[in-house]
């Protein structure tokens, strides 16, 4: 499932401190941290890198979904996040919104660091040290998004199948796949 030690490294910490979310999530991806799939898709600056890492990677790790799926997820996440921020009362210019979305991304990364560190040190949560459960991921997204006053139903963390079902939406809201129920943009597996 995962590749080696999932402990947070000093380099990963400096990546986030310096705002380099692409490098942080790329490092987590190399360890097969499943949260890094959407994290890297969101923050990679060149989508050809995302395509390469998916096409050369473990198909099971990528949930048997191709580049089109993950790239679509990333784009819709940004749109939904902006909507969530506005619903929480944020008003700003386009560049202020971009900066705010980056702040959210950094907070999510910091929460990921805290939760992974706690999980790693505890030793009795789940089966693998440093590997989070979906509930842990959902919980840290919840507190991260509350920091920015984003309403509950916009927070993220998902275990989407081909199309998210009612239970998934109830838990994970509209953040990661606002239009998934219409299958718009979803071209099927292995694309």
């Amino acid at each position: 499932m995962t590749s080696g030690d999932l402990a947070i490294t000093a380099q990963e910490r400096t990546n986030v401190l310096n705002g380099n979310l692409e490098a942080f999530w790329r490092s987590r991806l190399s360890k097969k941290d499943p949260v890094a799939r959407i994290g890297y898709a969101l923050w990679v600056t060149d989508t050809t890198k995302l395509k390469h890492v998916i096409q050369s990677g473990d198909t099971h790790f990528w949930n048997n979904k191709g580049f089109a799926y993950w790239e679509f997820m990333a784009r819709s996440t940004v749109v939904n996040l902006a909507t969530g921020l506005e619903r929480g009362g944020f008003r700003g210019t386009f560049s202020q919104m971009r900066a705010k979305i980056k702040d959210v991304g950094i907070e999510v990364a910091n929460q990921h660091i805290s939760f992974v560190t706690h999980d790693y040190d505890n030793g009795n949560i789940g089966e693998i040290k440093g590997l989070l459960s979906l509930k842990q991921m959902a919980d840290y997204h919840h507190i991260a998004f509350k920091l920015f006053n984003i309403p509950n139903h916009f927070y993220g963390g998902t275990w989407l199948n081909n199309v998210p079902d009612e239970a998934e939406f109830t838990l994970y809201g509209e953040l990661y796949c606002h239009d998934c129920d219409s299958a718009v943009g979803y071209k099927g597996a292995n694309q």
């Binding site: 499932m1 097969k32 499943p34 099971h60 790790f61 949930n63 999980d119 505890n122 009795n124 949560i125 789940g126 089966e127 693998i128 590997l131 989070l132 459960s133 979906l134 509930k135 842990q136 991921m137 959902a138 919980d139 919840h142 509950n152 927070y155 963390g157 275990w159 199948n161 079902d165 239970a167 998934e168 109830t170 838990l171």
Partner: peptide, 24 residues
């Protein structure tokens, strides 16, 4: 938290099991 209330099963085995993690 919504995660604490959820009983929805997961098909993504890339994540860990939730044993030992209580409600929030």
């Amino acid at each position: 938290t919504p995660a604490s209330l959820s009983t929805a099963p997961s098909n993504d085995s890339n994540f860990d099991k939730n044993t030992g993690y209580g409600p929030s």
